[in-house]
Design a protein around this nucleic acid. Structure first.
Lengths: 343, 343
DNA sequence: TGTTAGCACTCAAATTGTCCGAGTGCTAAC
DNA sequence: GTTAGCACTCGGACAATTTGAGTGCTAACA
């Protein structure tokens, strides 16, 4: 679709003004805002054509124009340009995703929090996962006579721990047995090959101490299953409420939707390399038809990937936020890579 | 304040009906709902007196009556009786707060989640803290050549862990040094005596390895400070949105309020023994003036206490929910006591 | 052929007026 | 102390009216 330079200018001005105010944009305003000197009538003619092409919409006959999904799309693809992040923003982002945090999950969740604050949007993120993540190490930290903490390390750098309790007192022979089981049945095993049935088999092999092993093995396999399932982290939910009117006052439906991990992880999984923008009805879920998603994949060590993104109203500031999300996601990838390699 | 039996009946009926429907209650309805046989005019007279006493309120001249804060208060204190929980509900609660969870924090957070689902309210809870909690044990689980997980156990049963990273490679002498520092400077120390300055002192004592110790000691003291600060867990936020109209359509303000830990922990800290009910304007924070809080202290081992409570609209079902909160909080106390003693 | 001024037109939002009915307060009688 | 009856009040729903922003169209112009 080719647009005359003047139409482009008009479309861009409508989009930008609408993003700024949320009010339909009229021809008279454009006349004064645009530096081209034509009358408002001419602008009306142009706008009518843009509307005919499906790029603008009119809420009602006697109102200004509002961008359609296609209008935003044209703006994002052709008009907004690739604004450079200024250095102060870069520094803010770098400070926000502080490297002090030592675990990959910590970095991601910190980044999500920060991005929510920076953009005033809800943010979603997933921890990275590699093609064939495996169990790398398992430690047991005794705590009480019957309790201990199981620590799981996977080959893609995820660390998870959980307290578990046995029904019988612990002793060194039990512990040894546990470590043997772990070594023979878990270490090196791909995460996705573990399910509820695994516990059965493994426990059975423990012979006389089978019963005592159950809580440990169960907890361990729970941990493994959890770290395999790409869980979605959600931050900044309250930002949604602050834009309630932009969502047609159905913000709470959107919130309910965001609380469900499964659709979110589907959306994030679809993200292509680089920044991906889904505007309004481009989203497959109708709960998102008044929202836009800006998400990016980050790469860790070249082969492990995760996503981080923001969800806001369609009239989100694309020109400002797309570069921010891109920069932040790159940064996250780099930081986590560094963490894993330093180990 | 003494009320005639008939006034009591009327007040109770108004409160209960209003809780059920959210609509102002009129004299005609009461006439048919109440089993006393007087005319609606008489009921109107009685209601006028109740209104004069400040127990009922009229949204406008030609509307039914609505309970005031004082009205609810009278109902809760004198009229609603002490309904027994039926066994099926007890069993539901017991199943909800499953004992499978092995850490005190796990139990609390599970209980909070469950209570939110049971009551359709937001729930807040704090982990228990004792008078003089101390550092009980510290473990270091090496993970990579420069990273490890610090595990903290406190005397009141809280377990916290965090990954931390050093700038230099770890070796056994460093580890030994760390354990020595821990033993001499942290073990047995009351949690509240540790602050940022502690790190300075402790690190300084490490001599030549001071620099290498910084990340570990810092992380450890962060963990300690965190476990001392009674953090508030919040669940079921979305339930607030479902009662938006009950909060005068300012649910998002309430939500923003609930996200701030500090006022919540102040509220929970004020709870007396047993169940405590704060109705509408009895709450000191004006963000809660259209809400009621039902909270209870739970006791662990007799000397450690935490709180769990629900926050809902003033027209919450007190008669049903107060016993539930009481039962659940007792249960939580018992379960955690058992966990700690079994260790 | 593109641009402009002018004007009629449309429609949402705000304003006003009217009516309805639920529910009250009051009074006089019981 | 209770009741029936009646006038009264006020919010909510509905329609009619006004206002103003903004458009579409057309005829004239460059």
């Amino acid at each position: 679709m080719e647009l005359s330079p003047r139409k482009q200018k008009i479309l861009a001005a409508v989009v930008e003004q609408y993003i700024k105010t949320g009010e339909p944009v009229g021809s008279k305003f454009l006349q004064s805002a645009l530096d081209i000197s034509v009358s408002s009538a001419t602008i009306r003619n142009e706008m009518a054509e843009l509307a005919g092409m499906g790029l603008l919409d009119q809420p009602h006959t006697s109102a200004g124009r509002v961008p359609t999904t296609e209008g935003y799309r044209y703006y994002v693809d052709h008009l907004m340009g690739d604004r450079k992040l200024d250095d102060s923003l870069k520094r803010r982002i770098e400070a926000g995703v502080s490297i002090k945090n030592a675990s990959p999950e910590g970095v991601i969740s910190k980044a999500g929090e920060f991005l929510a604050e920076l953009t005033n949007c809800a943010t979603v993120s997933t921890i990275m996962s590699g093609k064939d993540a495996r169990v790398k190490r398992v430690e047991f930290v005794p705590i009480g006579s019957r309790t201990g903490m199981i620590v799981l390390l996977t080959s893609n750098g995820i660390i998870k721990s959980r307290v578990c309790r046995s029904d019988t007192d612990l002793n060194s022979s039990l512990l040894e047995k546990f470590y043997n089981i772990v070594k023979s049945a878990f270490i090196g095993l791909p995460l996705d090959e573990i399910d509820a049935a695994t516990v059965q088999t493994v426990v059975a092999s423990a012979g006389s101490d089978a019963l005592a092993m159950i809580p440990f093995v169960t907890t361990l396999s729970d941990l493994i299953i959890e770290s395999e399932r790409t869980s979605v982290m959600l931050e900044g939910q309250s930002n949604i409420l602050h834009h309630d009117s932009d969502y047609g006052h159905t913000a709470h439906e959107l919130l309910d939707f965001l609380r469900r991990d499964e659709p979110l992880s589907r959306i994030l999984a679809e993200s292509r390399d680089g920044v991906d923008v889904r505007i309004g009805s481009e989203n497959k879920f109708k709960q998102l038809e008044k929202s836009s998603v800006i998400m990016a994949k980050y790469n860790v060590d070249g082969d492990k990937r995760g996503s981080i993104g923001i969800i806001g109203p369609t009239r989100i500031d694309y020109a400002e936020l797309i570069p921010s999300v891109r920069y932040l996601s790159d940064l996250v990838g780099k930081i986590i890579t560094r963490i894993l390699n330093e180990e």
